[in-house]
């Protein structure tokens, strides 16, 4: 027994070592990657935005929004000084306002996306999807189908969705619908934020950094295009000029960088 006991102990240690290292082959070590949280805080007329609540637009139209969501994809981190750009892989996200909160916390785990450590002075992403993803073959797995973002195989996806009601005494009924389903490649929006104004974004392995973006939902109805909701074309924008107007509005000051928290 005196001879065996060390052997058993050694075997246990060896087994534990093998187990440890074999586990590492299958699961990424979180400490090897940085993590990023992008917080989208939604506001309407500078008040916390709530679904199912009436607001007055720049055109003095009364609206109530029941649904508000959009696709964020192709996130790119840029160090303009060094001329480096790094893209995330398999990174498609749906940002939505819930009944419970105006805030959507987009958590990006570095292990599955290849989040690049470094010092980044710009970030860029799409509101929508690139053409290859938007027009994937019919039988290919679809994104966000549970959320109704997939439209059809000719148009691809809805990039941005707002559904609500417009109230006016001039209507046949007290309210009617206001729908903005914005898709089509010509409505793809690319946003780029200068992070240096808030201090650069530092991504460090094993640590989580945070970006906070303020989202001004009221901007959907103004600048450059003042939306008059009594114009029925703005009540159902599925394509055509009204969709372009909405898209131009949300391309302009809709998402604003608020703050950066580095580890």
């Amino acid at each position: 027994m005196r001879i065996l006991r060390p052997s058993i102990s050694l075997s246990v240690v060896m087994f534990a070592l093998v187990l440890t290292f074999s586990c590492c082959e299958d699961s990424e070590d979180p400490a090897s990657y940085p993590n990023l949280s992008i917080q989208f805080d939604h506001y309407f007329n500078n008040n916390v935005f709530e679904l199912n609540k009436q607001y007055v637009t720049a055109n003095q139209d009364t609206v109530e929004i029941l649904e508000h969501k959009y696709i964020v994809s192709n996130i790119v981190f840029i160090n303009s000084t060094q001329g480096i750009e790094r893209s995330l892989k398999n990174a498609y996200y749906l940002v939505k306002v819930s009944l419970d909160s105006h805030r959507y916390q987009l958590s990006i785990p570095g292990s599955s996306t290849g989040l690049p450590p470094g010092n980044w002075d710009k970030i860029r992403f799409l509101i929508g999807l690139d053409s290859a993803t938007n027009f994937a073959p019919e039988a290919a797995p679809k994104l966000f189908t549970d959320e109704g973002m997939f439209w059809d195989w000719n148009t691809g996806y809805k990039f941005y969705v707002m559904e609500g009601r417009y109230f006016s005494k001039d209507l046949q009924f007290p309210s009617t619908g206001v729908i903005a389903h914005i898709g089509d490649m010509h409505n793809l929006v690319e946003l780029e934020f200068d992070l240096s104004q808030k201090g650069n974004l530092l991504l460090e392995n094993g640590k989580t950094s945070e970006l906070v973006l303020n989202v001004h939902v009221d901007q959907l109805f103004v600048d450059p295009n003042l939306v008059n909701l009594s114009d029925s074309s703005f009540q159902q924008a599925m394509g055509g000029p009204a969709a372009v107007s909405y898209r131009q509005n949300y391309s302009n000051g809709y998402w604003v960088l608020n703050s950066i928290s580095n580890p």
Binding site: E163, R165, F173, P174, T176, G177, V178, I179, Q235, Q236
Partner: peptide, 12 residues
């Protein structure tokens, strides 16, 4: 029409 009718019903 009713106050809770889905907007997709009338904006179509």
């Amino acid at each position: 029409w009713s106050p809770t009718i889905d907007p997709l019903m009338f904006a179509s």
